[in-house]
Each structure stands twice: as structure tokens, then as C-alpha cells.
């Protein structure tokens, strides 16, 4: 992450200067933080509301129940987490929110899941095996109904805005499957 971040900035700035476009960087230095601030402001109430609800779900034992229900699927994926641990419930909630295309609800669940996984982590500076598996599941984009795309297709006058759902599901399944396969391979290699 360290190198990637530095590379993004160095490449960006050098290229801008080389093409005589230094003004772009100047503007970005002055205004760049605004978009991040806007994101946080939009995210703050969402985080508060969903974390509030999730705390109720956690206290009532609903999360543990959810994680026990889904343990046949999740346990093989997360062998390091004991059965019925709350983090599995949070991972499930994040996945469910993603699957239904509720991106705004998925982030609070995901961040809570990371916190919970960090509590189980032995070395707090190094990513645990479970964290990486969770992020592969998350970023390979398990989405059942890509709502944003469907509405965008509708806006552009598509004859059949939902015709891409099947291809989308198959592709997302394919990428998740191979992502997890690679994950198993890499985690064994490093362990």
C-alpha cells in the first residue's frame, strides 16, 4: 500500500509537469481534500444509524445467531475464527448488504467486521488471513442486483435494462470463486 500510494503521487505529479499541466496539481493540492470531506459528511449519519442498529443486533444476540446459521458456508472460508463468533455475523451482514446492492449500508458493517477481526488478530500491524479472505469476498463484488447500473441503463433508454443481470451474476460468481481459490493458495503458501 505504501509503495502504491507513493507511486500514484509521483507518477501523477511528474507526468503533469512533463506535459505542462502543473496547474492541475496546484488545484488538486488546494481543493483535493474537499471531496474526501464531502464523503465523510455523507457517511457520518449513515455510519451512526447503521452502527446504532447493529449494536442492538449485537446485544440481542441476533448477530451470533446469523453467524451460526451461515457457519456451514463461512467456516471453511474462515478456519481461524471460532464458530458463532460475532465477526462472522458482521461479515455476513456486509455480504448481504452488498448482494442486494445496498452499498451505503455495507460499509458500516464492513468496517465493524474489520474491527472485530482486528481483535482476533495476533499482530495488529499485519493483516490476518481472515481479513484478506474477507476483503477478497468484499471486493470481488458479490452483487445480485446491480441497481445503479440498471437505473443508468434505464435513463439512457435501454430496451431491456435488466437483461444484463444474468451475465452480471455469472461474472461476479466467477471472479469471487477464482479470487477465493487464489486466496486459499496464497494463504497456504505464506503460512
Amino acid at each position: 500500500m505504501n509503495k502504491l500510494w507513493a507511486a500514484f503521487i509521483v507518477i501523477g505529479i511528474v507526468f503533469c509537469m512533463a506535459t505542462g499541466n502543473a496547474v492541475t496539481i496546484n488545484n488538486e493540492m488546494i481543493n483535493g481534500g474537499k471531496s474526501a470531506l464531502k464523503m465523510v459528511i455523507e457517511m457520518l449519519p449513515l455510519m451512526a444509524i447503521w452502527s446504532g442498529l447493529m449494536n442492538i443486533a449485537s446485544k440481542s444476540g441476533l448477530l451470533n445467531k446469523l453467524s451460526i446459521m451461515l457457519s456451514p458456508i463461512l467456516n471453511p472460508l474462515f478456519p481461524d475464527i471460532e464458530k458463532g463468533h460475532e465477526s462472522l455475523g458482521l461479515i455476513t451482514s456486509n455480504m448481504v448488504a452488498n448482494i442486494f446492492g445496498l452499498g451505503s449500508a455495507a460499509t458500516p458493517f464492513g468496517l465493524k467486521a474489520m474491527k472485530s477481526l482486528q481483535e482476533l488478530n495476533h499482530d495488529k500491524k499485519i493483516a490476518s488471513r481472515s481479513m484478506i479472505t474477507f476483503l477478497v469476498l468484499n471486493t470481488s463484488g458479490l452483487t445480485l442486483i446491480p441497481t445503479t447500473i440498471i437505473s443508468l441503463r434505464m435513463m439512457h433508454g435501454s430496451q431491456n435494462p435488466t437483461e444484463i443481470i444474468l451475465a452480471s451474476i455469472l461474472a461476479t460468481f466467477f471472479s469471487t470463486f477464482f479470487g477465493l481459490l487464489m486466496n486459499k493458495f496464497l494463504s497456504r503458501k505464506e503460512a
Binding site: 495488529k124 500491524k125 505464506e190
Partner: peptide
């Protein structure tokens, strides 16, 4: 959560 080393992620 303050992870510094992301390994193969």
C-alpha cells in the same frame, strides 16, 4: 484498523 502490512491482499 491501522494495518500496515497487507501481505498478499
Amino acid at each position: 484498523v491501522g494495518i500496515k502490512k497487507t501481505r498478499y491482499a
